[in-house]
Design a protein around this nucleic acid. Sequence first.
DNA 1: TATTGATATTGGTACGGACAAATCATCGAA
DNA 2: TTCGATGATTTGTCCGTACCAATATCAATA
Lengths: 244, 244
Amino acid sequence: MEISRELVRTGSPKYVALANALAEQIRTTLAIGDPLPTERELQAGFGVSRDTVRRAIARLAAAGLVFNVQGSGTYVADPAQIRKGPRLTGFSQDMAERGLRASSRTLDCRIEPCPADTARALGVAEGSGVLLLRRLRLADQAPMALETARLLPGLFGDGLPDPEGSLDTQLAEHGQRIMRASQTITATNLTATEAHLLDQPVGAAALRVDRVGFTDRGRAIEATETLYRGDRYGYETAVERDPS
Amino acid sequence: MEISRELVRTGSPKYVALANALAEQIRTTLAIGDPLPTERELQAGFGVSRDTVRRAIARLAAAGLVFNVQGSGTYVADPAQIRKGPRLTGFSQDMAERGLRASSRTLDCRIEPCPADTARALGVAEGSGVLLLRRLRLADQAPMALETARLLPGLFGDGLPDPEGSLDTQLAEHGQRIMRASQTITATNLTATEAHLLDQPVGAAALRVDRVGFTDRGRAIEATETLYRGDRYGYETAVERDPS
DNA sequence: TATTGATATTGGTACGGACAAATCATCGAA
DNA sequence: TTCGATGATTTGTCCGTACCAATATCAATA
């Protein structure tokens, strides 16, 4: 493997720059199963410490690009097989990655008393006012999902969000970034109302995703229930074994 | 926070032992939002290097137990809100964690030609012989899921696996451990045959999980399709934002 | 009182070294 | 040829040090 000896750092830490450089070289010059240069070779080649090399490789391993074998080396993983784990995305980005154009039709946008289960998830008192946003989500103009979001009040200053835009983006503009979320995925048959909105036959199978979003401080700020059309949507995820 | 000064190491690395010790003390003596001792305090208290302390804390952070704030400290996260990510488990263990007793009824167990899509997932030639294992999975005696597994031949020496036992356990006994898997989750309506086996009405919504299991070397050895009853099963997962 | 600015504290990055554990290549013996 | 021992190689763990970046604290100032 050819080793470039200069790292481009645009404000990011050195190990991130090194990881990017390695990822690029893996894409361009290495095949699946090929070994990377040894850590000490990389250390010498890039003129960095082994600690930095190991951090960079750990980053690639976490992304599923490579895997380590103690005593042997570090090897390029199969990108077709090792899919990336589920990333936290909004609907728009999710659709974009599937090559679909996302749009939405707002069904409801107002302050309403919080139901019990949502209140528990958000850590607020039952019946206290939360922002309700109900939207029909379209992909390439055709109905894809029915989304009911409840957010803590005051996240958008005093006003309401723009129902047409990406919630995630608007939250970020107000200094609130959802860094992690917990989801429960179930299957359900559509009711008549839901089926009509989604342009599906009554009783059709739908994927129901209940999501609670947290900031990096662990504060729950958003609870969303989404009904995806079973015939159009699949949820991809990667799981790993417990360290044991 | 009280700091114990002795670490119990049962073969595991020091940072793992420290992480366990910290997790225990967090459970017993700290509340949500409380700050951990500073890294330098822990370093002195346990008599280890700061590197070891940081590794231990990184482990806890990855598990969602704590979170870091640069310049401020490390704080205890809310365990009720931050659920653990999905772990790679077999059906038996999955049910056990839900407090249900798993059993199974074998519907089919033989060698058969591999269909095209599975062949691609497993990286073998289409039509080559793979081990087919079809089982009805029961939880507390009631049908829960319909599982169709295809495995590379020869994983169990020359014979077939015991259809009643845990596949995962039997694989491990033959030196094959599935370390990661990629899954696609969809919703579907049950056919008449499937519905009958699962004791559900025809057309009931079911959660379909297509899983491909890989060894730590990235080799695919198992492809499983599982139909879970929509009224009994939910899939829980945690997602995180991309590092960006 | 409110704001600013200096200073200390805390986690984040980076360097260096040493040894352990797993693996691999080699060589010798059976 | 086959098997096993041996030593070299490679990743994993652990230690120590130094400095950077973000945050918190508090005194000085307007």
